[in-house]
Design a binder for these strands. Structure first.
Lengths: 118, 118
DNA sequence: TTTATATGAAACCTTTTAGCTTCATGTCAA
DNA sequence: TTGACATGAAGCTAAAAGGTTTCATATAAA
């Protein structure tokens, strides 16, 4: 753990990440958090063609996949992006499907990040 | 187009890719094709706890997402990985969620590839 | 030409998913 | 302490997804 964020995921957990990313509404929520991190549920609902409980469910799934971490402030639940699972998956598929010189770049990237892989 | 492979995808098409990758059986099929490219349906079915029509359905979804391209040889349908959609998505999320020096690496990567982005 | 092989397609079933409505709980502020 | 606000939870419905069985079609080989 580094602060609140888990830094290494099992292959099993990666399934939750893939499935969480499969829904366009959830990707849109991540986009919104990228534009403005730390929003509460109410803010995240604004302008969406969905009810609040629906958004809450999506956020719960993102939380379960560790793509979003939360912090309570009084009665407000603030949502923050966690980029670690994304990077894990990105690494996996880069390594698998890119030509050698790109894999080398990926290795460099990992060294810069100080990751310990699998 | 470069040969048979489409090199640029719309945001709409990316949804098909995300959804295709959400299923563990389909990711396993991609893994198998990575280990040995150009397999036919029969080969891809071997040792899987699934019937042939099920595997065929999965491959159809991978095809629709352009993650797999096919080539007929007589009565055999050969399946090949297409890495382009993966790279598109990888790029998107790298750019969004990684710190600046990693985005810079991603830019370098793109230049090496000669991609024209969005 | 007949038989075996490789795949496609249709119909059906079950489970999961995405959404809703309604109600309950906890926290802040007057 | 009362009322407004922010969220959680339960129960329901409709649609999508993943799988099966059965049958049809096209190609290769005997």
């Amino acid at each position: 753990m580094i602060g609140n964020q888990i830094v290494s995921y099992s292959v099993r957990d990666q399934d939750a990440v893939f499935r969480a990313l499969a829904d366009v509404s959830r990707r849109e929520l991540l986009d919104r958090l990228f534009a403005k991190n730390g929003q509460n549920l109410g803010e995240l609902c604004e302008g969406l063609a969905m009810t609040r409980p629906a958004v809450a469910k999506h956020l719960k799934i993102l939380e379960a996949a560790n793509l979003v971490v939360v912090q309570w402030r009084g009665r407000e639940k603030l949502h923050f992006i966690n980029s670690v699972p994304i990077n894990e998956i990105t690494d996996r598929w880069i390594r698998k499907f890119e030509p050698p010189y790109l894999a080398a770049i990926s290795d460099l990237k990992s060294q810069l990040e100080g990751d310990s892989h699998d």
